[in-house]
Nucleic acid binder design. Structure first.
Lengths: 257, 257
DNA sequence: CGCTTCTTTGACGTCCCTCAACTCGGGTGG
DNA sequence: CCACCCGAGTTGAGGGACGTCAAAGAAGCG
């Protein structure tokens, strides 16, 4: 097993352990998962809508996006995935892809066969719970995005996204909330926020002029985190709610099984 | 075990079997789940955001909604649940509620302890997969809603919702796509569509005038399903994609475990 | 029959989209 | 080293979809 797989799987275990209690043997089983490393270039589609998948994709490096295409060709991004995310873990149980997965930056991906994931889920109930939980957390993120799209204006949606990504980057040890690498252009940002590229540009400009945050050349600089948080209505305690309890309740839950 | 629990659990098993392969013993284990039946009245909140939950809620009868509240008090609905849905199955793995659950109509709910759900998930790997899959399908529905909110106009969003609910009603044997009971008022519809009640009213009127669909007094009448489907961009094959394969691939997957 | 709740309608404002042009930086080839 | 080009970012003008505010019907219900 190469070093890239090892590091990626370690990051994945670290992510799972934020919310799930896994003993040494269970962690070892995940670290020992077979995986095929491959590089992908920017804009490459890793999963196309409609594909029948047999592998899940672990991000070792770079930024991936989950997207849907409408009849008229427009795109809508439904999730962004950073290193340590198994970006379509859910495909183990729903192998026909409805959304596509693409690379927003050059990236390194580890393909992990569904078969292997199912095998350790069947062997270790705690791992099965951890995988299920990861899917639920992914869904919770999506739910937040749904609420924002339905009920918040463009500025708030952008601010929320910047808070969210900063926080995730920090938790994943990939940067700080105040300054992080974010490899999206304004068009891709627009597809994530449900806006046009033009209006995304204006909103970015407004945040910059207001001295709140500066997004430029694939890099985010947060100048006033409090205001950004308040504009975006980003609720950190809620965002992290599952993490805190999991380390306590996870233990309880396992003992019950 | 009373007749209401039995019927509700049967409907739940029927729902799971649409996508997951469960043998007689596994089905029996689900049907034997303990559950507390209770009636809830319209507008009653069953789960409040922030609650620590210990039970999942199976809808025996009526219409439930999953909602979020914003700081300013506005609401956003993220899911609607009909009879046979375990509306917060995901809470087994993420017990701290981020969204609330409320009744849109008077309803009958069966409370099923997480403990019991975990127990059969641990005993039967196929059941664990089925639960995980149900959470993934719920997330896929949410993803569709996200795309619609981000990229479709009010008329299309409404049309899509009417198609979706009609289809789900029909699959759950609660009505036909052309005519079904839908216990929401225009304000709740607005919270689901990311609109104001006033504009929802105008859009409903437009669909009525166009002879496409008539929503009146908690009842939906679809006059021209083809046009409704086309306006809403409702993609039935995609919607059902996991159902079809599951009955075939599910078998394969289980044999691999 | 009077109350509440819900629906409907109008007038007006605003947020965001559309279309179109211009700018900028960075690569590439002559 | 300059000419060109290309993708991405920026800006302006105008329009349309949807929100806001306000008030008048309906419809259920005690």
């Amino acid at each position: 097993m190469g070093i890239v797989e090892d590091q990626a799987l370690s990051a994945f275990v670290r992510r799972l352990k934020l919310r799930s209690d896994l003993n040494a043997e269970e962690q070892q089983a995940i670290l020992a998962l077979p995986g095929q490393v491959r590089g992908v270039v920017r804009n490459q589609e890793i999963v196309r809508p409609g594909d029948l998948t047999t592998k899940s994709h672990l991000v070792a490096n770079g930024l991936l996006v989950r997207f849907d295409r409408l009849q008229d060709g427009r795109r809508a991004n439904t999730a962004l995935h950073i290193a340590g995310d198994m970006c379509d873990l859910y495909s183990v149980v729903t192998p026909i892809a409805e959304s596509g997965i693409a690379a927003l930056s050059d990236a390194i991906v580890v393909d992990v066969p569904h078969k292997a994931l199912q095998a350790i889920a069947a062997k270790f109930p705690a791992v099965a719970l951890a995988f299920w939980r990861d899917t639920a957390v992914d869904a919770a993120t999506l739910r937040t995005r749904t609420v924002n799209l339905g009920r918040m204006d463009a500025t708030a949606r952008l601010a929320h996204l910047l808070c969210e990504m900063g926080h995730r980057m920090e938790v994943a040890q990939l940067g700080s909330q105040y300054s992080y690498h974010f490899h999206v252009n304004q068009e891709q940002l627009a597809d994530t926020l449900g806006l046009t590229a033009v209006h995304t540009n204006r909103v970015l400009k407004a945040l910059r002029k207001a001295g709140v945050a500066d997004v430029k050349g694939h890099h985010v600089n947060v100048l006033d985190l409090d205001r950004l948080t308040s504009i975006g209505g980003f609720d950190l305690p809620q965002w992290d709610s599952q993490t805190k309890l999991a380390s306590r309740a996870g233990r309880t839950l396992r003992s019950r099984i």
